[in-house]
């Protein structure tokens, strides 16, 4: 209940900040009214689009109190969706004005004779938002390197918000009132704070929390496990299932950080090592990760995430993983074995082939150490394979789970098709939704 209350409070704050410019403008109206109702709708859409865009920075600022309620992957998805929604509002703003006879050539062509400072800043902001959303949706199709995209994403976001702010101030109709000046001032200060915190203060704080790679070993399924050791500090403990952002380079200001699940067991002693298992998906995971060698420096921002077997207690656990999505589940199983937990654990592990199964030998050993049953599901099974084939489904779960399965806790991590299938299968099996935790690993 407390969680719902806290979640509601965060939502109310979010909604308040989106509607703040609109509410202030409605309460303290400007001296000169706009020529029509449609123009005011356009203005309102513009204000909402701006607020949504500005708050996008906050959604991905890794505020732990908010992430603890919603989950980092849900916040990331919400950030992605609201980015597209903001684009809709921002595009609708000039479109309505053009319908209301505003000269399109002045607003959409910064080189036309009638272009002014207000039209140019609006055009720049609009172009930045369009590029921002397009490069995010089609990053892979455009073959943009993740690190390049990350830099461009930050810069375009900044250009979009600053362009919009300049546009609002140059237009002046809603900045002439002191109340509105305070609102825009607050927005500017919060934005600057978030950017300075994330890009400057956080890396400086991380400087003293250096990590060193002590091992880089090859795993099955075209994956690698990197083991990190804290240098000059005690490292961190984590709940099994959590993840950290990995940054490899000479300084914490290095561009490019990657959210990776921790694959080693929890309950780490101070100064203990932490391991991450990374699948080769090209880019960083196919180039930088295989090249990493013992002694290389790294910075870990973590632990993050609410996806953990420690957060939900049940009479047993059902872990459902696909591909490299098994890594947080493997961490959970190892932690339970380490703690001598005797509760039953069922691991449904979907992979392409027998050779793609990461931690195959380790899982076999683990089955002897704890009450664990692993059910491998191969989508491209070899001849003679007697286990499950195809994909994890409602029928397959039914075949293997014990009678009391509705009292178990379900933890699912994997690619979108698996997650979508399970979000339908588990309710159909009568598993209460509050006993299901999910994490999509392709969150960025």
């Amino acid at each position: 209940m407390r969680l719902i209350l806290r979640g509601t409070l965060w939502f109310v704050l979010y909604l308040f900040l989106i509607l703040l410019p609109l509410a202030t403008a409605a309460l303290f109206q400007p001296a000169r009214l706009s020529p029509s109702m449609l123009t005011e709708v356009a203005v309102a859409l513009g204000f909402i689009g701006f607020s949504l865009m500005a708050l996008e920075f906050a959604l991905i600022s890794r505020v732990k109190t908010a992430a603890a309620i919603f989950g980092d992957d849900a916040l990331q998805l919400f950030h992605n969706l609201m980015g597209a929604v903001a684009l809709g509002f921002i595009v609708a703003h000039p479109m309505l004005l053009v319908v209301r006879d505003y000269p399109a050539q002045c607003w959409l062509n910064p080189f036309s004779d009638c272009a002014s400072r207000s039209t140019i800043t609006a055009f720049v902001a609009l172009l930045a938002v369009l590029l921002l959303v397009a490069t995010s949706i089609w990053r892979k199709q455009l073959r943009l390197k993740y690190e390049i995209w990350q830099i461009a994403h930050g810069l375009l976001a900044l250009v979009a918000v600053l362009g919009a702010l300049f546009h609002i101030f140059i237009m002046g109709r809603y900045t002439s009132m002191p109340q509105m000046q305070v609102v825009w001032g607050v927005y500017s200060v919060v934005l600057i704070y978030l950017i300075v915190w994330n890009r400057l203060i956080k890396p400086i704080l991380h400087w003293r929390r250096q990590w060193e790679i002590v091992e880089n070993r090859v795993e099955r399924g075209d994956s690698r496990t990197l083991v990190f050791k804290p240098v000059g500090h005690s490292g961190f403990d984590f709940e099994p299932g959590q993840f950290a952002w990995i940054k490899m380079g000479r300084s914490p200001f290095t561009v490019g950080q990657h959210p990776i699940s921790i694959s080693s067991p929890g309950d780490v002693e101070p100064g203990g090592t932490v391991a991450f298992t990374i699948k080769n998906l090209g880019d960083w995971s196919g180039g930088r990760v295989p090249a990493a060698k013992p002694g290389d420096r790294a910075w870990l921002d973590g632990p993050h995430g609410v996806f953990s077997s420690d957060r939900e207690q049940g009479m047993g656990y059902v872990l459902i993983g696909g591909g490299v999505g098994v890594t947080p589940l493997y961490s959970m199983a190892q932690t339970m074995a380490q703690r001598g937990d005797v509760r039953p654990v069922y691991l449904f592990y979907g992979a392409k082939t027998w050779d793609d199964i990461i931690f195959r030998e380790e899982l076999e050993t683990l089955q002897g150490r704890m009450n664990l049953k692993v059910i491998y599901v191969l989508s491209q099974a070899h001849e003679g394979w007697e286990g499950e084939t195809g994909f994890v489904s409602e029928e397959l779960l039914k075949r293997h789970l014990p009678k009391q399965y509705k009292r178990f806790v379900y933890l699912i991590c994997g690619p979108d098709p698996l997650m979508d299938a399970m979000e339908k299968a588990l309710p159909a099996l009568g598993v209460p939704p509050d006993q299901v935790q999910t994490e999509r690993f392709a969150m960025v």
Binding site: L15, A26, A44, L45, F70, A74, V85, M419, E423, R440
Partner: peptide, 30 residues
């Protein structure tokens, strides 16, 4: 949190914001 919920929530919020934009115009234009 279920992703279907996040998507539904985003759609509901967007609808609410469109309504807010029209409400604003009505308020301002009296």
């Amino acid at each position: 949190m279920h992703h279907v919920l996040v998507k539904r929530f985003s759609v509901a919020l967007s609808t609410l914001l469109v309504i807010a934009a029209f409400a604003f115009a009505l308020l301002v234009r009296g």
